[in-house]
């Protein structure tokens, strides 16, 4: 029996050209920041609705085991890893498992500078996460571009590409600061309506 080797279909130059085009299109579309998801704040003030006990249970279960996706481009990654290690433990919040596949995660802690080359991939990872999902922008580069904001290839903040729930300042933020940001996210989840109808509206 002979084995015949067949050459692959796409050459590397063709793939590079397609990817470059995708990046240029995303850059042209993302000139304004995406508004922050704060419907939960407005609803509470306007309608003053009390949460039902079903809501309370669902919110408690959602916030008690948020699983982060491993997404760690730059320096803040090591403060995130230090937060997950034994001195500042993330395991006591139920978050010690960092899921490699975004389909199994519900929190994205963006720990690093975002460049235009990476931006379509971040959008793809965010789209692969299942609802309900949250984003914590960690560090100065994630909030506004940070110390690199005037550079030609840096996106000024993740909220140009994906909607962000909590902003944690610092360069890099200390592990205690990241834990404070995670607690703020827990408070936000506690106060939000877990109504499925509202979640669909909230995402769009």
């Amino acid at each position: 029996m002979e084995i015949e080797k067949v050459t692959p279909v796409y050459s590397a130059a063709e793939l590079d050209r397609i990817e470059g085009q995708e990046i240029e299109e995303l850059r042209a579309r993302s000139q304004q920041p995406i508004p922050d998801p704060d419907r939960w704040l407005k609803d509470e003030v306007q309608r003053n609705i009390l949460l039902t006990s079903v809501d309370a249970i669902i919110n408690w279960s959602r916030r008690s085991s948020l699983w982060p996706a491993t997404f760690a481009p730059a320096c803040c990654a090591f403060e995130m890893i230090a937060t997950a290690a034994s001195r500042f433990d993330l395991s006591r919040f139920g978050m010690e498992i960092f899921r490699a596949s975004p389909r199994q995660a519900d929190l994205m802690i963006t720990a690093g500078t975002l460049t235009w080359k990476m931006a379509p991939l971040v959008k793809r990872i965010y789209d692969q996460m299942a609802e309900p999902k949250w984003v914590i922008a960690m560090g100065a580069c994630a909030i506004s571009g940070g110390i690199f904001a005037s550079s030609y290839s840096v996106v000024p903040g993740y909220n140009r590409i994906i909607p962000v729930d909590v902003y944690v300042p610092g360069c890099p933020p200390r592990p205690e600061a990241l834990l404070y940001g995670i607690r703020m996210l827990h408070n936000k989840i506690t106060k939000s309506h877990s109504d499925i109808q509202l979640n669909l509206l909230h995402k769009g």
Binding site: M1, E2, I3, E4, K5, V6, T7, P8, Y10, T70, F71, F98, A100, P102, M118, L121, I125
Partner: peptide
């Protein structure tokens, strides 16, 4: 009978745990 094999190109992408 020939067995066709094809070297396939896999992308070990930018977001990967290792």
């Amino acid at each position: 009978m020939t067995l066709k094999t094809e070297p396939y190109v896999i992308n070990i992408g930018p977001q990967h745990p290792s």
